[in-house]
Design a protein around this nucleic acid. Sequence first.
DNA 1: ACAAACTATAGAACGATGATCCATAGAAGT
DNA 2: ACTTCTATGGATCATCGTTCTATAGTTTGT
Lengths: 227, 227
Amino acid sequence: MIHRSGTLTYSRFMAMAKRSTSAPLRHRTPSLEVTSSIVEAALAIIGSDGPDSVTVRRLATEAGVAPMSIYNHFGDMHGVFDAVFEYGFTELAEALRTSTTSSHPVLAIQEMGGAYRRFALENPDTYAVMFLRVVPGFEASDESFLAAAHSFEQLSTAVQRAIDTQHFLPGDAAIVAQEIWAACHGAVALEILDMCAFADPTETYSALLVSLLRGLLLNPAESAVLA
Amino acid sequence: MIHRSGTLTYSRFMAMAKRSTSAPLRHRTPSLEVTSSIVEAALAIIGSDGPDSVTVRRLATEAGVAPMSIYNHFGDMHGVFDAVFEYGFTELAEALRTSTTSSHPVLAIQEMGGAYRRFALENPDTYAVMFLRVVPGFEASDESFLAAAHSFEQLSTAVQRAIDTQHFLPGDAAIVAQEIWAACHGAVALEILDMCAFADPTETYSALLVSLLRGLLLNPAESAVLA
DNA sequence: ACAAACTATAGAACGATGATCCATAGAAGT
DNA sequence: ACTTCTATGGATCATCGTTCTATAGTTTGT
């Protein structure tokens, strides 16, 4: 019986070529590079073709690594996504940290909100790994949640400052920060999902920030400073 | 070589039993029931084991239907999820429509926000199909988006009323409704994803509604009526 | 310097998945 | 009653994550 062969892809060609060489000639990637090259390849695939396209075989090919190395270094595919998750939140924390140019506590939060959306729109698929359930069965590890918590702290301290300086109504900074985070996430998520059919996403986002911040102000009249 | 057999599940037992019967004895499900039974089975599986567990074979088994019927009726698996998507938004629209008991326009919106969260928490996995990207590659059809739009209209008309009665600041009702929707979705999404480590979700949600509505009020002092 | 422990390698293999094809036969419309 | 439609059940395909195997390159301890 003749097995019907599929299309001849480049990887198949390479596999056949390697098989035909008489000398074994295995190349071994240095141990320290393996982990980072796998994560970088994953980020590249996520960015170009989306998280669904990150398969063991393709990831190994694009990282220049054996499929088994993924299991050696990350346990399973979820481990790779966990690394992506953690990396994403590290980047997000950095983006939030460097976003505040204003000395005004409320304006600083507004700028932070802008940086949040910018990050999401620049890395929509990474954002989807972090905040949507695009990877079936994946749940972030405790260590990765620490990175997420670090992102949250950036906002939380800014909120605390706004409360301490009596710009915001007195209250629990954690709850207020969570309110702002939820609002920003919701707007960005709907935008990425393309569920803003009836309103311009950019306009909605800035309006939402202004509305929410106005509601949090001790003196709502102060909202005039919010551009 | 002895093939190591897996656990003997009920479906396996049934499959073996069927295979051993000599008479064909096919039963045919009436055409009209097939579609609904498939969707109902999908909803049942989603509710009990999550969207990932909805496979062609299991869905066919639990719906009492041949695997091919799924393709005959829905084209592919995405078609089934599209039906779930549409059904979910139909239910959501109904939940929002029947939620407003108050005659006060702003309180009505607040009640609607409560109904939104209640729906999401009662059907978290259906909500995930609607608002998270839990089904790889699935995108809702245009018809299903109409159902989603109908849900949005419930909120949009309530917002228009709050603007017309001069409770809210003057502005585009679509944008304001989108702001509220985004905030509610964001809070609920983070709660379902269990990313509210530092603040109680229930407290955060009601606080977010109050803060945002206060920011939207023509006279923020009126926010005292928001419980 | 040499031996042992570690781990990356290629490749086959397994079970489960979505999807397609097929001939048969029951249900529905004329 | 006859024709058309379509559900059935089973085989089949490619691809997926994962595991196993033997081999061999790298690192480390003595």
